[in-house]
């Protein structure tokens, strides 16, 4: 299983892997927002956490269509499914999700604090946003895996994944953003939404891979 994790990370960061593209997309989205809403620093610092979250959400959806499709195209997926007796397929999917998150989404979390500065956010707000992203983005990947699994047979499933997955990640977005705001706005407590966010991630870490494994099983033809 560790071998699968390292193989997928290697594929992600090696030439043409597209892990860099996600971060670039994130940067570009954040850089575009001020042109749309105007360069008012007060306004930007107010909407900063939400922008960071939406940017990270869109960027992490970006590479999801390749999660299983690359393996399907070269026949690896058949062998991953056949190995079910040795490695439970849901666990294989879970490991693939973790590798995808480490190679493609973790860089977004690392980039987020710098982009927070562009948004004129306060240090506490930046820290809270980065922390909620660290805890919340795995949930996006786990739900995204379900979307990637059900669209694996489609040659251009990328857009469809976003359409399918975006409604499902709204709870994650709500609690992530509200926890980030709570860290800055005084009366709101930070911990409750943050803990709910963590619970969501843990819950989806189980549900997502199981559902995705089921979908992959039926997608084989």
């Amino acid at each position: 299983m560790l071998a699968l994790f390292f193989r997928d990370i290697r594929l992600g960061i090696r030439a043409g892997g597209g892990a860099l593209t996600g971060v670039l997309f994130f940067l570009a989205v954040i850089a575009t927002i001020p042109f749309g809403v105007g360069p008012d620093l007060n306004l930007l610092s107010r909407i900063g956490p939400a922008i960071l979250w939406i940017g990270a959400l869109l960027a992490s959806l970006l590479g999801l269509d390749r999660l299983f499709q690359a393996d399907r195209e070269d026949g690896s997926l058949d062998l991953l499914i056949l190995a079910e007796g040795r490695h439970m397929l849901a666990f294989t999917v879970f490991v693939k999700c973790l590798a995808h998150w480490t190679a493609s989404v973790l860089p977004l979390v690392v980039a987020a604090p710098f982009l927070g500065l562009f948004m004129n956010m306060k240090p506490a707000g930046i820290g809270a946003a980065a922390l909620t992203l660290l805890v919340g983005t795995p949930a996006i990947t786990f739900i995204g895996a379900v979307g990637a699994a059900v669209t694996v047979v489609l040659p251009r499933g990328g857009l469809l994944i976003s359409v399918l997955v975006l409604p499902l990640v709204i709870p994650v977005l709500i609690f992530g953003v509200s926890a980030s705001y709570a860290a800055v706005a005084e009366p709101d407590p930070f911990l409750p939404p943050f803990l709910i966010l963590a619970a969501l991630t843990l819950f989806l870490a189980v549900i997502g891979p199981v559902a995705a494994a089921l979908a992959l099983r039926y997608a084989a033809d």
């Binding site: 299983m1 560790l2 071998a3 699968l4 193989r7 290697r10 594929l11 090696r14 030439a15 043409g16 892997g17 195209e73 070269d74 026949g75 690896s76 058949d78 062998l79 991953l80 190995a83 040795r86 490695h87």
Partner: peptide, 22 residues
């Protein structure tokens, strides 16, 4: 029909992965 090997990895990396996995 497909070889289930990754073009971006070396031959040894591919085989070692399948050996570990299988």
């Amino acid at each position: 029909h497909q070889n289930a090997m990754k073009t971006a990895l070396s031959v040894a990396e591919n085989l070692r992965f399948w050996q570990d996995f299988a």
